[in-house]
Design a protein around this nucleic acid. Sequence first.
DNA 1: CCGTATCCATTCCGATACTG
DNA 2: CAGTATCGGAATGGATACGG
Lengths: 156, 156
Amino acid sequence: MAKRASHDKAECPVARTVDIIGDEWSLLILRDAFDGLRRFGEFQKNLGLAKNILATRLRHLVAHGILEHAPASDGSAFHEYVLTDKGRDLFHVLVGLRQWGEHHCFQPGEPHSVLVDAQKGQPVRPLEVHAHDGRRLDATDAVVKKVSEQKPRAKR
Amino acid sequence: MAKRASHDKAECPVARTVDIIGDEWSLLILRDAFDGLRRFGEFQKNLGLAKNILATRLRHLVAHGILEHAPASDGSAFHEYVLTDKGRDLFHVLVGLRQWGEHHCFQPGEPHSVLVDAQKGQPVRPLEVHAHDGRRLDATDAVVKKVSEQKPRAKR
DNA sequence: CCGTATCCATTCCGATACTG
DNA sequence: CAGTATCGGAATGGATACGG
């Protein structure tokens, strides 16, 4: 009865995405994956979550093609979880979360980690949203066009 | 015993952010808030979640300064929930989720809503991450610099 | 070292009834 | 319309023990 709602059929891309990665642990696992963590034990130690939960989340991410579970690239006999291309495309989401946190979740002077350009060591620029023609947009300049409002195309 | 882990003390901005908005309903509420929804009933109807849960989430978002609960701007006697500046800064996160979903969660030809420039009606550009000097970065070009690795400054 | 299996407390979610 | 109160079922999360 109290089955968790699912939005995997929604016409809204946000809903579908949130349905897949919209939970605390998955997002943190992804953060660590972008940080280069690969092994089960690394995730477990770094996140401090129970192994069964980690296993569930990893399975889920693998099932959705975000992580790949493959034999380790180095000689070791173990397997590792690495981001697929699809998973790497979540980069912007993680950067967005990070930048918002840097800006809004710390007291002035309170130390926090920073995302920097690997070459120069400089912090990355804040994300911006741009229109098709390059104009910068903020939240009030953008609207969601619903499917039903879209120009119907050839029947399919 | 099975209390949910909290990351509000983490030094990682992603962890703190995820701690606040890293759950399904909060993210969907925010999506709707960016869509212009304001009233309790609008959220409830559009999301189809129980009122008590919605109330809890809204309270939480208000407590964290992401939404503001104020009397309606129009004449009506009711209150409404509107994004604060802090909340509006989550725009990039939502755009990131949306774009990923548009790209990865739909079959070719399957219809979905689209985020467009309000002026011209054109879809917005895909997000990009840029270095301080403007070079475009992907996930492998950026690294997280931990607090402990940062150059110590004057004692504080 | 990498997971699976089990147990149990807690939390969450949905439905409904009820109040202002 | 906008919530609060309550309830039961479900899923989650944490700990631990166990097998590959």
